[in-house]
Design a protein around this nucleic acid. Structure first.
Lengths: 169, 169
DNA sequence: CTAATGAGTTGCATAATAGAACTCAAGATG
DNA sequence: CATCTTGAGTTCTATTATGCAACTCATTAG
């Protein structure tokens, strides 16, 4: 059976997972960010099957995260460059780094760190609430219907029971 | 063939993807965060096959992101609660929201928004560099070997050519 | 006594993966 | 000129994983 698609899901997370909810796509983006943008470079660093790499690259180009660009003609050779959307996705991937470091590389023994290309300053990704500037803690949060929410009342009630009872009593 | 595992990969992103690099696991965590923590609730909201849900839940429990807890005996019934690690992973997932909203829900028409459980204030996830407080831009970044980096010199040179030439000339 | 609930199993057809080998064009080498 | 090498993919096959539907099973509710 074909993998389920979330393109019509009423959830930003779900829709993003159509292209990022997979193990190879994020890693391909990572390599492109690291400057390994050609087929054989990607294959070498990721140790991915060539047929899979072919397909994933097509998907990423199709989804608008990568651009397939010829870096020479005669013989035609290509590289895969991050688009704006691709760079935006990379930022999300970088948000995985502190999580991975905390849970899979204890004692600060993480293998890679990020630096500013110009200044060389250490860069540490962190996820905050931009309204308060404070680090996000999922325990404090509650989901509410946003401006584009559309659903039958029964579903609405079922999903936002707390919210619903608060605003109607 | 069995899906490739990254548990020994020298990369925080790759190791995190062993459990988060998939479409169902993140969505299951999302539902648990939203308070839908029981088998049938998860099945209803995610519209996931029951056999797949069973397996994924076992994986998430095994990976330490969820706890399987009996909420009643006679008949024994369970719910799946987020652990500390699970909550930490949720924060990463929430970082997908602005990406999804930007690229899949134009014009601010996103369906869900987050609010502080106590104050009701709007919460907007954003990924910043905690050293400067500025929004992260992947274009400005360069990866460098971190404290736990281990690799043969040839590989080191190949991956960090820019870094390597800078520090040795 | 029958129905409903919650939480899974079991069986099956179809896709996706991993792995390895093969293709193909254009330069480079001897 | 014949062969080698590079870059970028195909093709083939054996396993897995996914999605779907139907089935189980214990316990309580009516």
């Amino acid at each position: 059976m074909e993998r389920k698609k979330f393109e019509n899901s009423p959830c930003s997370i779900a829709r993003s997972l159509d292209v990022l909810g997979d193990w190879w796509n994020p890693l391909i983006l990572r390599e492109c960010l690291y400057g390994n943008t050609r087929f054989d470079e990607l294959q070498f660093w990721l140790d991915i099957s060539r047929n899979i790499l072919t397909r994933r690259l097509a998907v990423l180009v199709d989804a608008g995260l990568l651009d397939k660009v010829a870096y020479q003609t005669r013989p035609k050779r290509f590289e895969y460059l991050l688009t704006d959307k691709g760079h935006d996705a990379c930022v999300v991937l970088l948000a995985l780094m502190p999580f991975g470091e905390r849970w899979y590389f204890k004692n600060g023994q993480h293998p890679i760190e990020l630096r500013d290309r110009k200044t060389g300053a250490l860069v540490t990704p962190e996820i905050i609430d931009s309204n308060t500037g404070k680090r996000l803690d999922s325990r404090d949060l509650i989901p509410c219907p946003g401006p584009g929410f559309r659903a039958p009342k029964a579903i609405m009630k079922r999903r936002f029971s707390e919210f619903y009872s608060e605003t109607t009593k």
